[in-house]
Design a protein around this nucleic acid. Sequence first.
DNA 1: CTTCACACGTGAGTC
DNA 2: TGACTCACGTGTGAA
Lengths: 223, 223
Amino acid sequence: MENFGEEYKNYWENMFFPSEDLDGWAMDHEGFSGYYDSSSPDGGASSAAAKNIVSERNRRKKLDERLYALRAVVPNISKLDKASIIKDAIEYIHHLHEEEKRIQAEILDLQSQNLKNPTYDFQQYLPILLRSKKTRTQHLLHSSTSPIQLIGLKVTHMAEKTFVVSLTCNKRTDTMVKLCEVFESLKLKVITANISSFSGTLLKTVFIQVSLPFCPSSMFIYN
Amino acid sequence: MENFGEEYKNYWENMFFPSEDLDGWAMDHEGFSGYYDSSSPDGGASSAAAKNIVSERNRRKKLDERLYALRAVVPNISKLDKASIIKDAIEYIHHLHEEEKRIQAEILDLQSQNLKNPTYDFQQYLPILLRSKKTRTQHLLHSSTSPIQLIGLKVTHMAEKTFVVSLTCNKRTDTMVKLCEVFESLKLKVITANISSFSGTLLKTVFIQVSLPFCPSSMFIYN
DNA sequence: CTTCACACGTGAGTC
DNA sequence: TGACTCACGTGTGAA
């Protein structure tokens, strides 16, 4: 029996090396069958026992492979112990659960933070705006001489029917005039407007009041 | 030997019931020692073997408990198989990894969305602001006659060293004057400022330029 | 009757 | 040396 122990001395360390000698081992085992199984020396029973042996060995091998794979996906393994591997895996799953909960809270916080100052991105409605006023707006924004190069455009809902439109763009020649023309062309009810220029950029802030209840898409088809 | 099998027939199902009969079992085992261990019938060796037996039994029990605990933290167990439990645990960890990656991407997306219009919430820096200018600001914001009732306060990073401070508050008597006093007390380098009032609320927008590189907390200790 | 998964006792190796 | 961890072969009950 000692040779078996020699063969599998380092089994746990290099269990992923497929050892073909395992298959041939059942034949050798026939010679040992009489040693402890004196009551049934017939070939049929010993063959069944050998089948059981190799089956059990495959089962153990599979289980150890799984355990090895589990150890591979779990970082910070404290010990190579079988029990410790499972223990670390459990703790790691708990850690992942906590992290997921924490990150979910963070994402919820970010979402609520976005919701707290409800700034709707204008960018997606700009095409609608351009389509509806293609006749004038289009060629103003894309005039060959000095087009309005948009940097940022957003609308903030201040009160019912009241919005603040903030538009940032590069400052070129006549950009300010064109900007005013664009806004004028929208025929919005402007409460107050302010244009500031610094370091090559323009920022135009316009308070507008709409007659319809808030609906971002309808707001800019409005003319 | 059959009685042993009977005792542990349902071992896996109720492994968490501490079975006290395990301790007393070693004594019974003495009677069987001669059956297969004919070479060493002395009491010392058999006692050592008995210790080994109970130790090994405890080891197996611990390992099974760990496996049971692992099964408990993994949802959607396909089979109660030992190997399947580990396999499902591995898949579950992979699932958690994917989910974490997905959610991290989502949080990054949200953050970039916040960064695209980099509006830093002023609210958390307001206490610092108030602390640093307690002498004047504090009593202005909390004066008994008509305190400035803050609705929204945020700063937007426009360019290097350039920020837009937007402050919204309720409009009361002298609110506008006090607002100007507060901003004046901060000794900021104001490029341009604009105050608008509508439907009982005030909005003050100030372009300021700071001499230090951007650091939200230091910015408002600045005086 | 065969297959499968299991718990068991046991010897060997390690620290 | 004693206290471990491990792989092995084996018997057993369930599918």
